[in-house]
Amino acid sequence: MSELAVPAVRRKEGGSAWRGRLEHLATHVVVILLMAIWLIPTIGLLISSFRPSADVQSSGWWTFFFQPAQATLENYTYVLAQAGIGTGFINSLFISIPATVIPVFVAAFAAYAFAWMSFPGRNILFVVVVGLLVVPLQTTFIPILRLYGQIGIEGQFLAVWLAHTGYGLPFAVYLLRNFMGELPREVFESAAIDGASPVTSFFRLAIPMSVPAIAALVIFQFLFVWNDLLVSLIYIGAANPENDPLTISIASLVGNFGQGWWYLAAASFISMAVPLLVFFTLQRYFVRGIVGGSVKG
């Protein structure tokens, strides 16, 4: 009996461990598969950027694996040699940094007020701000451009800064308000008992504890602005080409009939360098939880 029972137990234990490993493996396979699907277009683009233009036009990027010797940097040298790419790069930085800092800063104030200060109409105001999320930014071009024309700032960096601030704020306020609302009430109550004003609580408590959310927001907003073509084209493009960002310089690599599109792969990787840098620099803030340990006991 016992001789029979022991293997039975062992078999059971061995079976569950084996099943656990199998499930683990299945999860890994699914995750890796999803990642591969997600990455394939980017990998294709990366490979295309190193292929000679004649090949890009005549065959798919995967054929590169059968003739890797043809890798070339000519697309990159062509793109970098174009007039306007350098200025476009500087202009893009000049547009993206303020257009990220301003909305995040304003949104942080607003989010704190919505989360921790009570004032009449708070909820209605918040609903209105969140409701603005569904307004397509394309519908605002004409009235805003008209306004800019009247105050005379069309074609200037200020015009895009303000526009991106407006377009970014609803999402920024929504994200930060929800994050700050989740912060432990006790922290703010203790601070208030110790005599901290709302301003002190904001700068000393709310902001440091919200760093992960702010970092996420900075990434979103920066990418949104950095990648933007349409907003810059409308508010700057026609009036003052000197301030055109990188996206406009890149789009103009392609001719009227679409000729030259093969340079876009290389150009997009040049353009992606900065967002990648921003992403990897800020990524660790996602992981580092500041809230953990802030409430003792």
């Binding site: 990455l39 277009p41 397509p136 990418l223 990648n227 996206t247 997009s268 992606m272």
Partner: peptide, 18 residues
């Protein structure tokens, strides 16, 4: 494709931009 590649990095929240 240009823009797709860059927002493949992060979630697609910025899809509307370009």
């Amino acid at each position: 494709g240009v823009f797709m590649a860059s927002f493949a990095l992060v979630a697609s929240a910025c899809a509307a931009s370009s």
